[in-house]
Design a binder for these strands. Structure first.
Lengths: 177, 177
DNA sequence: ACCTGAACACCGTTCAAGT
DNA sequence: ACCTGAACACCGTTCAAGT
């Protein structure tokens, strides 16, 4: 009586992510996702819950795709590598990346470690991490959401580099406890 | 033959803004806005264009509501007052405020002035302003979009104060040309 | 000039079916 | 177990009407 499944959570997320990448978040609908899979919208519910859960799944998938750097560097290089890894997924999945600002802050443990090894007062690591990731996320979401659309890629790249310098300065001020 | 208008752009924007404030951006629909005004959805088109234009109108209205500070202060106080004015509207209209990240950066001329009078290299004022507003906007959108929902109001307030200190440090490093 | 009714294509979601 | 059809309430938008 059991019938072989012709779709599963994974291919649904792939289809939805493709829609988001190609046409933005508003293009991610149950109908469009189902159509891309040659199935009816109702078929999705068994596998991904409802639409809100589908979007949660996309965020989850995006977090999975972040390639965090090896820890073979000083904290400065480590920080920069993490920021660039984040920027890479932001460019790959701009629409879904913007959702990160609406989710409770998920701290990659690696960042906390980097800050402690950088010699920051343990009592201030949490706040420093929060501000650091807010600054980077704010810039990247601005970038992929079109706030810098009037500026050339070169200008935006230079701004990002400057931002990383500022973060290093930020950490430096914390180091002088 | 001309019939007296029973709605206009202004009351439509008020109704839409109220919906956004109460229930978020997804609650801002032509249907709901019209219903709130006791009119059919089709009646709105004459006054606000289509839905995208309605949202543009909300952003425009929000920018109007920002009470920029008097220039009776040093650049430090000026910067802080501007940031707090921005935060005030962010709290008043959280959903619409989040849209600012998707609009081409609108620079309040007052900020540029504040930076030049702070003694920053004119050739670097533009980039400094961009990073400054990105940092503030990124924090505020994070705050009103729920990224800090697990943290107490007290914690978020402290983070914001720390952010302002960092911006002052940022400017200080620029002053040492 | 301004609003409405009718119409169309599209949404999310449920529930009772079919295999 | 897994998918579909039918059904419902809700969307955005247009266009030909009504006043």
């Amino acid at each position: 009586m059991s019938r072989p499944a012709c779709i599963d959570r994974s291919v649904i997320l792939d289809a939805a992510m493709a829609l988001a990448d190609e046409s933005g978040l508003h293009a991610v609908t149950m109908y469009a996702t189902a159509k891309r899979l040659g199935v009816t919208p109702m078929a999705l519910y068994r596998h991904v819950g409802d639409k809100a859960a589908l979007l949660d799944g996309l965020v989850e998938k995006l977090l999975t795709e972040i390639r965090l750097p090896q820890e073979r560097q000083d904290w400065r290089g480590q920080l920069e590598a993490m920021a660039r890894a984040l920027r890479e997924v932001a460019h790959r999945h701009p629409a879904v990346f913007a959702l990160l600002l609406q989710r409770p802050a998920t701290t990659p443990g690696a960042l906390l470690e980097a800050l402690t090894t950088a010699g920051i007062d343990p009592g201030r690591v949490a706040q420093t991490e929060r501000l650091l990731s807010t600054v980077i996320l704010g810039f990247l979401v601005s970038e992929v959401s079109g706030r810098f659309q009037k500026h050339s890629e070169k200008t935006v790249n230079a701004d990002f580099d400057r931002l990383l310098e500022l973060l290093a300065i930020l950490i430096a001020t914390e180091q002088g406890h």
